Simulated scan of single mutants.
Amino acid sequence: MSLFELQEWLGHRYASSTQHYAKVKLTKLAKSFTQAGYFERNIRVVEVLLDQEAVKSGAAVTGEPWRFYDLGHGYCSYDFFDQCPHRMACAKCAFYVPKESSQAQILEGKANLQRMLQEIPLSDDEREAVEEGIEALEKLSAQLADVPTPAGPTPRQLNENRGQVNFIPSSSIQRVPSRN
């Protein structure tokens, strides 16, 4: 029953009288939250990965990161992840390790920030924040400079080879007859 239906059924003149008798106990409230699935919908699950080699070799004892929290775009090696002061600004944090697969996202993010600087009138504080973001993304990109691409060469090697013409051997070209 709703509060007003219960008020009528009990014959109370004021809803406040009905509320006095219909107080919800905390245990009943907690049970209602559980039945509604409130806690399942509002829990953020973060996968924790352990570097067993760092633990076995003793590197973890010397301060090497050994526990990583998977953030989707990268890993956080901060032991007190739930209390991290850099929440939502991982690129600026020394504990952040980008995933090898995030290079394209980093480059795209940097290009978008540079476009902001050029196209949007920004206050001094906004400009400073965008420039800090670009600097943080450049650091992340540098961390991934020696990670091989799917084709084999690293981004550093690709940058070194820019300007050089790479010829494809004619033996690797498949000739397809044209239809005229």
Rank of each mutant, 00 (worst) to 15 (best):
T154E: 00
S172R: 05
E131K: 08
Q174M: 04
E53V: 09
Q103T: 08
Q7E: 06
V130Y: 02
L122W: 06
G109P: 01
Y38L: 13
V48P: 00
Q118S: 13
L71H: 02
P65E: 02
K28R: 14
F80M: 08
E108C: 06
A54H: 03
L3V: 10
G72K: 05
S2T: 14
S17M: 10
W9K: 15
R156C: 04
R175E: 05
D70W: 02
T149R: 12
M1K: 05
Y69V: 02
S16C: 07
A89D: 09
Q103R: 15
H20T: 12
E108K: 10
E126L: 05
I168M: 15
Y14D: 10
Y96A: 01
R13E: 12
V46K: 05
P153M: 03
Q52W: 11
E5A: 14
A36Q: 11
Q174L: 06
V55Y: 03
R41A: 13
A142R: 07
G74I: 00
Q164D: 11
K56C: 08
V46R: 07
P155M: 04
C90Y: 00
P155N: 04
D70Y: 02
T154Y: 01
D146F: 05
A22Q: 13
C84M: 04
E8S: 11
A60F: 09
G152V: 08
P153R: 03
N112Q: 12
F167S: 15
D82I: 06
Q114P: 02
R87W: 11
Q105K: 12
F39W: 13
N112P: 00
A104W: 04
L113A: 09
S102N: 07
G133M: 00
L137Y: 00
G37R: 04
A129V: 06
V130D: 00
S32T: 11
Q157S: 07
R127S: 04
L3G: 04
A59Q: 10
F80Y: 12
E119L: 14
P98H: 00
K99Y: 02
P177R: 09
P85K: 11
M1L: 06
W9Y: 13
K23E: 10
W9L: 15
S102F: 03
Q143V: 05
R13T: 14
T34N: 09
Q83N: 06
L26K: 14
A136I: 01
S172V: 05
E100M: 07
P148E: 04
S77A: 15
E160D: 14
K28V: 10
V24L: 14
I134A: 01
Y14A: 06
S32W: 12
S2M: 07
E138I: 04
K92H: 14
F167C: 12
S170C: 07
A94Y: 04
Q19K: 15
N159Y: 10
R127H: 06
L107D: 05
T34K: 14
P65L: 03
M88S: 15
H12Y: 14
R67H: 03
Q114C: 03
L6N: 01
R44C: 06
C84W: 01
I173G: 02
A145R: 14
L29N: 09
E53L: 09
K110Y: 07
C93A: 09
A151Y: 01
S17A: 11
L50H: 12
A60H: 13
E126Q: 15
K99V: 01
E128T: 12
K28G: 14
R87D: 07
I106A: 01
K25Q: 12
S178H: 08
C76M: 04
V24M: 12
A136F: 02
D70V: 03
Q35H: 09
E40K: 15
Y78G: 03
S16N: 07
D125S: 13
